[in-house]
């Protein structure tokens, strides 16, 4: 406990760094996954290659991806950009399938009536399909957020500073306190991300707040 009080500054800055490294890819991943998911709905033949293809990315171990990034991007091994790009790839691996399935789960009757009222595909996407797909996308985001927070810590092995650095520091010095503080901070950060996503979902889906008996708040 003394150690924690003495290192609040370090823990704080590590947490902020960690939040960036996990959070920015989450947003980037969503921004890329939406058009890809939409394409796979517009052109049915794209669904399998896109979903399977991005899914394959998830099989690459995070440590390997962090190490390979400099080769692909021409960055130095310590550049945080490596982590951001790698985490964006993992987010995509999870979200492309989610967005594609979420858009497909919008009932045909709804999209058909939107089309019949004269909405063009892009406007239909933003005013009808995406809003209705929010709950499913949000569930995928929650999984991706928790998974990102956990994976980012592995970047400590290649020397990028964030909460994972507490793990490597503690392990090298055979000292448990930093490791436990890092674990707690990671779990709290994951919880915060989760709360933000849940709150955003509530804001975006006012029609679900009227007490329909669905188990959506699980």
């Amino acid at each position: 406990m003394d150690w924690v009080l003495g290192h609040l500054d370090d823990i704080g800055s590590y947490t902020v760094q960690h939040a960036w490294l996990a959070g920015v890819p989450l947003v980037l991943g969503l921004l890329i996954a939406v058009p890809l998911g939409w394409l796979s709905r517009q052109y049915n033949w794209l669904y399998t290659p896109l979903v399977v293809g991005t899914g394959l990315l998830y099989t690459i171990p995070s440590l390997a991806l962090f190490i390979l990034m400099p080769l692909l991007l021409g960055t130095t091994i310590l550049d945080p950009l490596n982590v951001v790009v790698a985490m964006t790839i993992y987010t995509l691996a999870l979200l492309v399938r989610t967005v594609a399935d979420a858009l497909r789960s919008v009932p045909d009757s709804v999209t058909a009536s939107a089309t019949a009222m004269g909405l063009r595909p892009l406007r239909r996407l933003f005013t009808v399909e995406l809003p209705l797909a929010v709950p499913v996308i949000s569930a995928g985001m929650r999984v991706a957020a928790v998974s990102n927070v956990s994976i980012v810590s592995v970047a400590a092995l290649i020397g990028v500073p964030q909460l994972g650095s507490l793990f490597t520091d503690g392990f090298q010095r055979d000292f448990l306190d930093p490791i436990v503080s890092g674990l707690v901070a990671c779990v709290v950060l994951a919880l915060l991300f989760d709360l933000v996503i849940v709150a955003a979902t509530r804001l975006l889906t006012p029609w679900l707040r009227t007490g329909a008996p669905t188990g959506r708040a699980a």
Binding site: V146, V149, S150, S153, L163, G164, L166, F167, C186, A190
Partner: peptide
């Protein structure tokens, strides 16, 4: 909760 625990730590 288990998912949120970082494996390395």
């Amino acid at each position: 909760a288990l998912r949120a625990v970082p494996s390395l730590g």
